[in-house]
Computed example of a mutant assay.
Amino acid sequence: MKKSILHPDHRQELLDRVVKLEAGDQGHWGSMQVEEMLAHAREVAAAVLKSPKPEKKANFKQVLGKYYFFYFKKEFPKLVKGPKRFDMKGKVDQGKFQEEKQGLLDTLQAFGSISHQLQGFHPFFGPLSHKEWGILVWKHTDHHLRQFGV
């Protein structure tokens, strides 16, 4: 079974790993500071929670990319650039570590009490199902936690 933020045990695994982060932790790759990573992961997860129903269908390239990512790729690729709206580089005060950590914990925990089906249009994969969004949020969060060694 693929890990998903929607599964209570899988979600708890991520929460336990977030708790292990400490101010000043250094990333093993990339250029984000730990506070920026926490804000980035929180913003992405929060956007998924409230994303609107997609208005367009996936193109052929998106269908192939989605199939590869969800069925063959075990981990989120390193150093992939996402949408600029989620770029937190230089936008988070280093003194906000605890606030950003708690914000990510709260946002991840919110996936346990959603009463709607996740939906929305991903810029690379096109529209995703509820199940696919759950897997994607888990993989994305796992990626950034591995980036900081937890």
Rank of each mutant, 00 (worst) to 15 (best):
I114G: 12
F97R: 06
H116D: 09
A41L: 10
K89Y: 13
K53R: 03
F111P: 07
M88H: 01
Q119H: 14
E75V: 02
W29H: 14
F111N: 05
V80A: 14
W138S: 03
Q33M: 10
K61A: 14
H40T: 04
D106V: 01
E35C: 13
D106T: 01
L49M: 04
H140L: 11
K78M: 09
E35P: 01
G120Q: 03
Q98S: 15
V63K: 13
A45C: 06
R85V: 03
I135M: 11
L79A: 11
T107C: 04
D93N: 14
M32C: 08
L145N: 03
E99S: 15
E100S: 09
P123N: 12
A47C: 05
R42W: 00
F124V: 15
H144W: 05
Q94F: 14
P54W: 08
G134T: 08
V137I: 09
P83D: 00
G95E: 05
F60N: 13
F125Y: 15
W133D: 15
K66V: 03
F121P: 08
E132Q: 09
S51T: 12
F69P: 06
S113P: 04
F111H: 09
K96V: 02
K57F: 09
S113N: 05
A45D: 11
K101Q: 13
F121G: 05
L79E: 13
T107P: 05
M32R: 08
G65C: 04
G95W: 00
A46I: 01
K131N: 09
G103E: 02
Q102H: 14
F125E: 10
H140G: 14
A110E: 11
H28G: 15
G30K: 04
A46S: 01
H28T: 02
T107G: 00
F121S: 00
A41F: 07
A46P: 01
K66E: 15
E75C: 05
K89D: 11
F121E: 13
K66Y: 08
K50C: 10
V92S: 14
E75Y: 11
G27H: 00
E75I: 03
G65Q: 13
M32Q: 07
H143Y: 14
S115I: 01
R146H: 08
F148K: 13
Q117V: 12
N59Q: 12
E55H: 06
Q117M: 12
A45V: 02
A110C: 09
L118G: 02
K91M: 10
E100D: 12
M37D: 12
G30A: 07
H28E: 12
T107K: 00
D93V: 06
P77F: 01
F111K: 10
K101I: 03
K96N: 14
Q26D: 03
L79S: 15
Y71E: 11
F124R: 15
K96H: 12
P54N: 10
G95L: 02
L49A: 06
A47F: 04
K91Q: 10
R146E: 14
K89R: 12
W138A: 03
G90T: 04
D87H: 03
K66I: 05
F111G: 07
Q33K: 12
Q94N: 12
H116R: 14
H40R: 02
A23Y: 00
E75R: 08
K89A: 11
T107W: 05
L118E: 00
L79Y: 04
G82S: 12
L64E: 02
A23C: 10
G90M: 09
